[in-house]
Design a protein around this nucleic acid. Structure first.
Length: 223
DNA sequence: GACTGATCATGG
DNA sequence: CCATGATCAGTC
């Protein structure tokens, strides 16, 4: 497959991203000699990985921004015909133990969302994967209000975790940020804080951005 | 139709 | 197991 070198500047990254706009996923995949799956049931991260390859993101699963040297995180965002997000957006795993003294400014959520390159893509299931079109990219930085909403939700959720109430947290907690299972399946287990302060085993969780929040981000750019 | 809990693939 | 990339799919 054709290798794309890491972008050396944000401007170069944006030019590459803008070059994808209007193309179909099949066209992008062909340039990289990547095979297009029939559906995403067994390839849920395929679109995101295609964009990583097309833009020169480093492969790997480090808990960092995709373009660490540029301070940019890459996210694909599936939209319906009305231009609204079809799915929540995964941000990162949530720490469920060793959370004492953790502050918002040092959290993984804060760092990953410092600057995000959103790439919209048609996501309705009736459209074959290869025929889905890519939209214009958005380089987003949270404004003061968004930052405050994120911090408030993060602090509320982290407090519940620190109090050993992780099992009581549902996706309804949080206005813009939610905590949900993030694992291979419901049998996966990790260590979390119990109500008596000891440690217990729980299903791993991740932070996700709610669709209304990402819809607002898109609206601020596209009207 | 939206939402929440569950799930799939891959690499270290 | 953990972390990346996310979407699936049953229920509300």
């Amino acid at each position: 497959m054709n290798q794309v070198s890491p972008p050396t500047s944000v401007e170069q990254l944006m030019q590459r991203a803008e070059g994808l706009a209007g193309l179909t996923l099949a066209e992008i995949a062909a340039q990289l000699s990547i095979k297009v799956p029939q559906d995403l049931r067994r390839d849920k991260g395929w679109v995101g990985q295609l964009f990583e390859a097309a833009l020169g993101a480093e492969a790997g699963s480090k808990p960092e921004q995709d373009f660490l040297h540029l301070g940019v995180e890459l996210k694909s965002i599936p939209l319906n015909a009305a231009g609204l997000p079809l799915e929540t957006t995964y941000v990162c795993v949530a720490p469920l133990s060793d959370v004492t003294g953790m502050r918002w400014e040092q959290s993984l959520v804060y760092h990953k969302l410092q600057r995000v390159l959103w790439i919209p893509v048609e996501g309705e299931r009736h459209i074959p994967i290869g025929e889905r079109h890519v939209g214009m990219p958005i380089l987003w930085q949270p404004n003061a209000k968004q930052l405050s909403q994120l911090q408030q939700d993060w602090e509320e959720i982290m407090e519940l975790i620190s109090l050993g109430k992780v099992s009581q947290i549902t996706a309804r907690h949080g206005e813009v940020l939610q905590l949900r299972p993030k694992a291979a399946n419901s049998k996966a287990m990790t260590t979390s804080i119990a109500e008596d302060g000891s440690l217990q085993m729980t299903n791993p969780r991740g932070f996700y951005l709610k669709t209304q929040f990402t819809a607002e981000i898109l609206r601020n750019y596209f009207g």
